[in-house]
């Protein structure tokens, strides 16, 4: 793949000719799943390789935190934060499209599903006359894992997990990609001295 990482508006650091050429650290192989346009600066082979290697591990760890959360440190919130860090890493290394490629659902949908899960679990005990947030637990033995304790609170925690991931991703989407586009727009507007109609929610393609 040709070197295409350098962005037109990247400021030239130092006089030309003295430093290494622009985009020298861009990888030649494909490490991430889309055409990469990083969020900040030029492409970096180090970042992409590390992202590729680390993301599965981070996601696995986040699930571990989620399930171990009931009586040990962890839980939905911590797990969700860790999982969203994986996606933030992916965004930093690969840009907006890379982030979108890695997501099964849109951030808002994630939020909604998470809220449904959490509130559904919180409200479900009401149907049988128990107070809100009441929890049930089942214990059973699985061949490999030994004794397993399954709590209805886990569903609640999964909801929290999804809410956190959805929230962080919408923050990344709103503060990262869309703002870049808006900033560009506003700058052009000011340059063109058009009358300002107020910086409304525009966004769209970068």
């Amino acid at each position: 793949m040709p070197v295409n990482g350098s962005r037109p508006d990247t400021p030239a650091d130092g006089p030309t000719g003295t430093g290494p050429p622009e985009g020298w650290e861009a990888p030649r192989e494909r490490w991430l799943s889309t055409v990469v346009r990083p969020a900040f600066g030029p492409r970096s082979v180090l970042l992409e390789v590390v992202a590729r290697l680390l993301i599965p591990a981070i996601l696995t760890f986040s699930v571990f935190l989620l399930v171990s959360g009931h009586d040990r440190p962890g839980g939905g919130f911590a797990g969700g934060l860790v999982a969203s860090m994986a996606y933030v890493l992916r965004y930093v290394a690969g840009g907006r499209h890379e982030l979108a490629a890695g997501l099964p659902l849109r951030p808002n949908t994630l939020l909604a599903v998470g809220m449904l899960l959490a509130c559904g679990t919180a409200g479900a005990p009401l149907l049988v006359g128990a107070p809100v947030l009441d929890a049930v637990q089942y214990k059973f033995t699985l061949p490999v894992f030994g004794e397993v304790k399954l709590l209805s609170a886990l569903i609640f925690e999964t909801g929290v997990f999804l809410i956190v991931v959805g929230l962080v991703l919408s923050v990344v989407a709103a503060l990262g990609a869309r703002m870049e586009a808006e900033e560009q727009e506003a700058r052009e507007e000011r340059a063109g001295r058009r009358p300002r109609g107020g910086a409304t929610a525009g966004g769209g393609g970068a």
Partner: peptide, 15 residues
């Protein structure tokens, strides 16, 4: 619980 839980579920559904 209804005034608390139902609107939140409604919010998720409308989302």
């Amino acid at each position: 619980a209804v005034p608390l839980v139902v609107p939140l579920i409604g919010a998720a559904v409308t989302l």
